[in-house]
Nucleic acid binder design. Sequence first.
DNA 1: TTGAAAGCGCTAACAC
DNA 2: GTGTTAGCGCTTTCAA
Lengths: 339, 339
Amino acid sequence: MPPDTTRSHATLTDVAKAAGVSVGTASKALNGRFDVKRETRERVLRAADELNFRPNALARGLLAGRTQSVGVITNDLDGRFAPKIVVGVENALGADQSSVLLSITRGDPELEAHYIRSFQERRVDGILIVGNIPESRPPARGLDRTPVVYVFSPSSSPEDASVIADNVAAGRLAAEHLIEQGKRHIYYLGGPPEEVAARDRGQGTREQILAAGLSVSPLQILYGTWAEQWGWDAVGGILASGAPVDGLVCGDDQIARGAIDRLLSEGVSIPDRAAVIGFDNWWILAQNSRHPFSSVDMELEAIGGRAARILTTGAPAPGVVAHPGHVVARWSTIGDAPR
Amino acid sequence: MPPDTTRSHATLTDVAKAAGVSVGTASKALNGRFDVKRETRERVLRAADELNFRPNALARGLLAGRTQSVGVITNDLDGRFAPKIVVGVENALGADQSSVLLSITRGDPELEAHYIRSFQERRVDGILIVGNIPESRPPARGLDRTPVVYVFSPSSSPEDASVIADNVAAGRLAAEHLIEQGKRHIYYLGGPPEEVAARDRGQGTREQILAAGLSVSPLQILYGTWAEQWGWDAVGGILASGAPVDGLVCGDDQIARGAIDRLLSEGVSIPDRAAVIGFDNWWILAQNSRHPFSSVDMELEAIGGRAARILTTGAPAPGVVAHPGHVVARWSTIGDAPR
DNA sequence: TTGAAAGCGCTAACAC
DNA sequence: GTGTTAGCGCTTTCAA
């Protein structure tokens, strides 16, 4: 008789029957327990293979009380940050044989609550709440006792666990890199002053310049928008002012690109007369442009992985873990590689 | 007595007990069945609310035979295509109260097989296999009878269901748009000739030019790479040749950007003397550049949504569904909006 | 070493 | 209307 094709999957009972043993024995055999005769085990394994047996994770989870799965709540998935974070999460959990349940809220608190509920019904072992801006957010509601870790956007409650990017440290790294290249007159072209990421990166830049014994006037710390046009305009202004400038820390890669385009169009040679570094290390801009440029990689994958590991390793400890990035040096600060 | 906090979640039995009814009645009440007295229902609902009851989806799924969940297998999640596709999938399924199980294979067939197995054990209702290049791929192995739809990279087997981007149609749309703007001497600057996406978009461009009664020589259909530099170089070559040119269909947004930069640097006015259109409508390039440009949006979210709906609506019909995009017109073809 | 049986939490069929 | 019961597929005692 051919295998039963009416039901979608063979059950353990089917396997046991085919192998001529009881379900209990079949279970032990498949789970590699030692109290099964070798010959029996082999018979069971063969039967399972022939029937294409897939142990029902629902039944297992129901019994075990845990599901080897975590829920991930994101604001968006096509922005700049969430995709890489989720990749890091998935990598970390995949190694743990855990599954990722993904949801997208578009910032809607109602939807967030809905997904939290849905994840709880599915008995996920934990929940990651991934933000898309580096600003703190109120803790999610309706959380029961499911463990939660906030990622990128920290929770405003000190009782919660969060993993975020350390923008102050990143700013320091950027400035340090320029100073190491011998630059002495460094400007910071930041994003909007009301955004904490823009301010933090600026603060780090400033701190590091001062730490190197160089001076920095308020005129060298500028705020604008996250756009190319701002980088372009700002460089125009600085050059027109006649003030000395040999290094630019740009608040993000878009600003950096605008700055570089302007420098080149004004005939300023890069990196000799002026070096430029951005943030985020977005490959489409920093790497794939006609003029590749240096950038501080915020290591979003590592941030995601770290959050996932914190979530799945006992109860997450309250507090914020800030993750620094690292500098990826390219033409705009170190010139073309020697051949 | 305070509610039991030792176990993680209240069960239906707890709720029934608290409401002074049997589990059967509690179940009916919570599921809105009509054969329950109103007063009883309200008592049950109140008890459920007080105990923060979350019906165990594992138990439900075990009984029902379906889990309201689908597995999504992607190659990557930080590339150009997968994120938007997954967003479309999630939106479509969320409306259906279904969950998305996400996995990333990095193109490793072993990992793909592993995730398929894992999804089958979790009894997902279907699987979406999302590619990251528009080339066909061999069907996945070990699939049992779980329904599958391939997305973006179609399956090479005609028995499978696939939803892909229609690059030929997209090429036609791009050329049509330039022709509508009165352009008569159109070039195509494509990606690598060995890639079907590059060829398809070129073919569509060519077809539409001919359909409009214009001529197109092989010299006007050029292939290179997907990079800005190629757009920059190609435009240089065309201008140097002195051949007439007033429209450029660029194989992707990076090429378009390079082409635009070169045209501007050579003093060619856009869009009057030459109009430019790209593909993919990648906001960081097409929209956020200093010079925004037109692009054919491949509607990846719609593709993902369509695939999800096909998957969850009965058995997917074999064959390939090709999804055309639409033109997003910006400065590079229609100039600045009148004020 | 193996088998029988209880039970995870829920729904649906059948009594009352 | 409401209660009782039989499983869904699995793991885990406890006997044999």
